[in-house]
Structures are given as structure tokens and as C-alpha cells.
Design a binder for these strands. Structure first.
Lengths: 179, 179
DNA sequence: TGACTTTATGTCGATAACGACATAATATAG
DNA sequence: CTATATTATGTCGTTATCGACATAAAGTCA
């Protein structure tokens, strides 16, 4: 199976929230929070929009009030919306967990079951990861001499542990506060 | 200028620490902590090793005590070591900061000035990032209605803020403890 | 109105990266 | 001792991604 393509889903997520976006608008979105999780250059975006158009996931917006003749604005279609939802509903695993924040970004309803599901799965995954990292720390760095021998490795391992502690803590607090 | 290639530097960092590694050994390293920051499949690694060999950054290890005739073991050369150091010494910027943990992993000396330099630059960068994220939160989510309208966005923004708080805190504690 | 800049879109070539397939040398099992 | 599995390396085709270059419309300024 080919590697899953992320960019079209990101574009669908953006169009789902903001109708009538141009390619340039989409490019600009990557300058904000979403740019933390996904980036794309305009030379990717424009061909991608063409492809999504022929795939029927988006359509050219008819409503053009003003404006600059070269600007092309897009809307999401029903098929595109279905595709976006299917992506958001895909189970979170250790392999695709890096996309979780990206998916959360596209869920706007506080009481969405999909959102809660993602958070709950993340608690599981990151709790496991945390305990795995702690175990590694025990294995590799139980003695001071071991720390001195690979200090950089020791640092990033303790950093990862703290990051995961914070992560799990945040997830649990967020889940607790949402019910 | 072409996009900087990371994989050869990672391989050099591994060989710098563990001489006499085979391609398979290198592949296996990506299963441990380093896999958090960089991954590569064997179909990338083997051609890369060939290329690094012709570039003179690595050499085939002469010392083969045992063993399976098909195994090829490599050592880092002086030129390779120089190249590794040059990479580690490249200034950390907002653009390449994602590689900082990777670089730290390859610095073994607790009192390395390069290590301290990386940590200090990261404090600067992440402090700035944190204040930028807090500003965004103010701008976008000062009212409850705004939170309800884009709850997922609100979540990942607060999550990013906590992550950066933890990050800066860890960096400062690590720097304080190392002098 | 003409020169110049900016904006929005389009296109092309290079390559990092990956999955799939292939092969040879050992190891294992019956 | 042969059949099969595992290990280590190699190769190929596809594609996502990016930088560089190109173009046309609109805006700006004199």
C-alpha cells in the first residue's frame, strides 16, 4: 500500500472551516499554528488543488464578488467532506500519532466524539511511551559513569520523559475537563 | 542552494560513537531513541553508505574478526569527522531547531561548549516561541465564544504553550545544573 | 500612460524517501 | 544433507516535496 498523502486532507480541513479560499490563502495558513504540524510550498499546493478538483473533493467557488481575475477560489464538496471525515475517523496508532494534533485542529465542536476518541487513544499511547522511555533510562543510565559516557543521549532521554509526562498530564486534564 | 541532507550526518554521528558498524546495525539504531528524531529504511541506508564511501567520509573497516562474508562494516574517516563537527557547529535557528535533539544525541562530553551553545540558543528560540504562542492565544481566544467556535484549534494551542513552557523550563534547569 | 512592483498561479527538474522485489550468505530443522 | 528460514545487502520505480523559473493580472508611482 502506498504511503498516505496528508496534504489533500489538510487542504480539505482548511476548506471545511473557511469556504472560498484561494491557493494563496491556503499557503498563508501554513504561517500560523497549523505550520507547526504541516507545511507546503505553493508549488505543491496548486497542483494538489488541480488534482483534488478532478477527484471531485473540491469545486471552484461560483461566488466571486469582486475581484482579481487570476484568483481562483475553492469550496469543499460533499465527497471532499466525506473524505475528510474518513481521515479524521481513522484510528490513531503509534505510527500516525504525529498527525493527531493536525486532526484536532480540524475538529471544531467541543463535544465531538471523534475528538474525545483521539484524546483517549493518545493517553494510552503516550502512557505506554512514557513507561518505555523510563525503562530505557533505567537500562542505560542507572550509573553516573553511563551518563558521563553519553551525556547528550542522557539529556534527550530525560527531555523526552518530561515531555511525555507533560503530554499525558495535559491529555488527562483536558479529558477530565470536557465531561 | 539545495536542501541540506540529514541522513549522512546521522550516520556519521552513529559511526563516531560506535566504530565498525554495518548497514544493518545502523538500521537497527533507528529502532531506539534516535528513531524519535530521524528514521531511514535500509533502501536509503545502503546507497547512502556507498555515496559516503566515495565521498571519503567513511571507509570499510579492515578489522573483521569473524564472520558472515556478506557483512560490510564501516568506520568514520577524518574527513567524515570534520564534516560531522561542522554540522554540529552550525548555528541553531528557528528553521533547523527540529534537529537540535538529534545533534545533542551525538555530543557525548558533558562539558562540550557546542552542547552548551545549542542549549542556550534553544532557550532563546523557545522563549520567543512561547511568548508568540501566548500572544496568539490572547488574540484568538480571549472570549469563550471563540473557544467554542474552534475548540480543536484552542486545544492544540494550549497544548503547544504547555509544551514550550516545559521545554524552556527543562532547558534552563539543564543549563543551570551543568555549571 | 508607461515603468516597476506585488500578487496569484503555474511549471519543471532534482532528489529524498519508501515500498517492493531480488539475491547471496548463514543458520536451522527435519 | 537437503529444504527452508533468516540475515544483510542491493536495486528499482514511484512519489512527495522543494527550489527555481515563468507568467499574467492588478496595484503603484511618476
Amino acid at each position: 500500500m502506498p504511503k498516505p498523502r496528508i496534504l489533500p486532507n489538510v487542504i480539505l480541513g482548511l476548506l471545511d472551516n473557511h469556504p472560498n479560499m484561494s491557493g494563496r490563502d491556503i499557503e498563508n495558513e501554513f504561517q500560523t499554528e497549523i505550520g507547526e504540524f504541516w507545511q507546503a510550498s505553493h508549488s505543491q499546493i496548486y497542483p494538489e488543488l488541480k488534482r483534488m478538483l478532478t477527484d471531485g473533493w473540491i469545486e471552484i467557488a461560483t461566488e466571486r464578488v469582486d475581484e482579481d481575475a487570476k484568483v481562483i477560489r475553492y469550496d469543499i464538496t460533499i465527497a471532499g467532506h466525506d473524505h475528510l471525515l474518513a481521515w479524521l475517523h481513522e484510528p490513531i496508532t503509534a505510527e500516525n500519532d504525529a498527525l493527531s494534533s493536525l486532526k484536532l485542529y480540524f475538529i471544531h465542536d467541543r463535544h465531538s466524539p471523534t475528538l474525545a476518541k483521539i484524546l483517549r487513544t493518545q493517553v494510552e499511547l503516550h502512557t505506554k511511551k512514557l513507561s518505555h522511555l523510563r525503562q530505557r533510562q533505567q537500562q542505560l543510565f542507572s550509573k553516573d559513569a553511563q551518563i558521563d559516557r553519553q551525556y547528550g543521549h542522557f539529556l534527550i532521554l530525560t527531555r523526552a520523559i518530561e515531555r511525555e509526562e507533560n503530554n499525558v498530564d495535559w491529555l488527562q486534564r483536558t479529558l477530565a475537563g470536557s465531561k
